[in-house]
Lab assay of single mutants.
Amino acid sequence: MTYKLILNGKTLKGETTTEAVDAATAEKIFKQYANDNGVDGEWTYDDATKTFTVTE
């Protein structure tokens, strides 16, 4: 399945997608991606749209 991440960081904003077997796997990938890019904030997930959002 395709999952989407919306980044609302102070210095980085944008979107990315990943292919993952489930939401938990996608979350791990996205949290590593956000960490690698210096984004740390409040996480939400919308199962209907398979979208994670992180807001600093």
Rank of each mutant, 00 (worst) to 15 (best):
M1G: 09
M1N: 12
M1V: 06
M1K: 13
M1D: 13
M1Q: 11
T2K: 08
T2F: 15
T2I: 13
Y3H: 03
Y3R: 00
Y3A: 01
Y3S: 00
Y3N: 00
K4A: 06
K4R: 09
K4V: 14
K4W: 11
L5Y: 02
L5H: 00
L5K: 00
L5Q: 00
L5V: 04
L5G: 01
I6E: 04
I6P: 00
I6M: 06
I6G: 02
I6S: 04
I6Q: 07
I6Y: 08
L7N: 02
L7D: 01
L7V: 15
L7A: 04
L7W: 10
L7H: 04
N8L: 13
N8W: 05
N8M: 11
N8P: 02
N8T: 08
N8E: 08
N8S: 15
N8Q: 10
G9D: 04
G9F: 13
G9N: 04
G9W: 07
G9E: 03
G9R: 04
G9A: 09
G9T: 15
K10Y: 14
K10G: 11
K10Q: 08
K10W: 06
T11A: 08
T11E: 15
T11H: 12
T11M: 09
T11S: 11
L12Q: 06
L12Y: 13
L12S: 08
L12V: 15
L12D: 10
K13D: 07
K13R: 12
K13P: 05
K13E: 15
G14V: 15
G14L: 14
G14A: 15
G14W: 15
G14Y: 15
G14P: 05
G14H: 14
G14D: 15
E15R: 05
E15Q: 06
E15W: 09
T16K: 12
T16L: 15
T16G: 05
T16Q: 11
T16W: 14
T16A: 13
T16Y: 10
T17I: 07
T17F: 14
T17V: 11
T17M: 11
T17K: 09
T18D: 03
T18Q: 07
T18W: 08
T18H: 09
T18G: 04
T18L: 10
E19I: 12
E19K: 12
E19F: 09
E19P: 06
E19N: 15
E19W: 06
E19M: 07
E19Y: 13
E19T: 07
A20Y: 03
A20H: 03
A20D: 03
A20E: 04
A20I: 02
A20R: 03
A20L: 02
V21D: 09
V21S: 12
V21T: 14
V21G: 12
V21Q: 09
V21P: 15
D22W: 03
D22F: 03
D22H: 04
D22Q: 04
D22A: 04
D22K: 04
D22I: 03
D22M: 04
D22N: 11
D22Y: 04
A23L: 09
A23W: 07
A23F: 08
A23Y: 06
A23T: 13
A23K: 14
A24M: 13
A24S: 13
A24V: 09
A24R: 11
A24W: 06
A24H: 07
A24Y: 11
T25I: 07
T25E: 12
T25N: 12
A26W: 01
A26T: 01
A26K: 00
A26Q: 01
A26Y: 01
A26V: 03
A26F: 01
E27P: 00
E27K: 08
E27A: 11
E27H: 13
E27Q: 13
E27Y: 15
E27M: 13
E27W: 15
E27N: 10
K28H: 10
K28Q: 12
K28E: 14
K28P: 03
K28F: 14
I29V: 14
I29T: 12
I29D: 05
I29G: 03
I29S: 06
F30R: 00
F30D: 00
F30H: 01
F30I: 01
F30V: 02
K31Y: 08
K31Q: 13
K31H: 08
K31A: 07
K31F: 07
K31M: 13
Q32Y: 07
Q32G: 07
Q32T: 09
Q32S: 07
Q32P: 02
Q32K: 09
Y33T: 04
Y33F: 15
Y33V: 05
Y33P: 00
Y33Q: 03
Y33G: 01
Y33N: 02
Y33L: 06
Y33E: 02
A34D: 01
A34F: 03
A34K: 01
A34L: 08
A34H: 02
N35M: 13
N35H: 15
N35L: 13
D36Y: 11
D36Q: 10
D36T: 12
D36K: 09
D36F: 08
N37T: 11
N37V: 11
N37K: 13
N37F: 13
G38P: 01
G38R: 07
G38M: 12
G38D: 10
G38W: 06
G38L: 12
V39W: 10
V39Q: 03
V39A: 05
V39Y: 06
V39D: 02
V39H: 04
V39K: 02
D40Q: 13
D40E: 15
D40P: 04
D40L: 06
D40V: 14
D40K: 05
G41N: 02
G41F: 03
G41S: 02
E42G: 08
E42M: 11
E42K: 07
E42V: 14
E42D: 13
E42R: 10
E42L: 15
W43M: 06
W43K: 00
W43N: 00
W43F: 05
T44D: 11
T44W: 08
T44H: 06
T44R: 09
T44G: 05
Y45H: 02
Y45K: 01
Y45V: 02
Y45W: 06
Y45N: 01
D46T: 05
D46V: 06
D46G: 02
D46M: 04
D46I: 05
D46Q: 05
D46W: 04
D47R: 09
D47N: 06
D47I: 14
D47H: 06
D47F: 07
D47Q: 08
D47G: 14
A48V: 09
A48T: 10
A48K: 15
A48N: 11
T49R: 07
T49W: 05
T49I: 09
T49P: 02
T49A: 14
T49M: 05
T49K: 11
K50P: 00
K50L: 07
K50W: 12
K50N: 13
K50R: 14
K50S: 08
T51W: 03
T51V: 15
T51K: 03
T51Q: 05
T51H: 03
T51D: 01
T51P: 00
T51F: 03
F52G: 00
F52E: 00
F52W: 10
F52N: 00
F52S: 00
F52P: 00
F52L: 01
T53N: 05
T53V: 08
T53L: 08
T53M: 08
T53D: 03
T53A: 08
T53P: 00
T53K: 07
T53I: 05
V54W: 04
V54R: 01
V54G: 01
V54M: 06
V54A: 03
V54K: 01
V54I: 15
V54Q: 01
T55I: 07
T55A: 09
T55E: 08
T55K: 07
T55V: 11
E56M: 05
E56D: 12
E56G: 04
E56Y: 05
E56W: 15
E56F: 06
E56I: 05
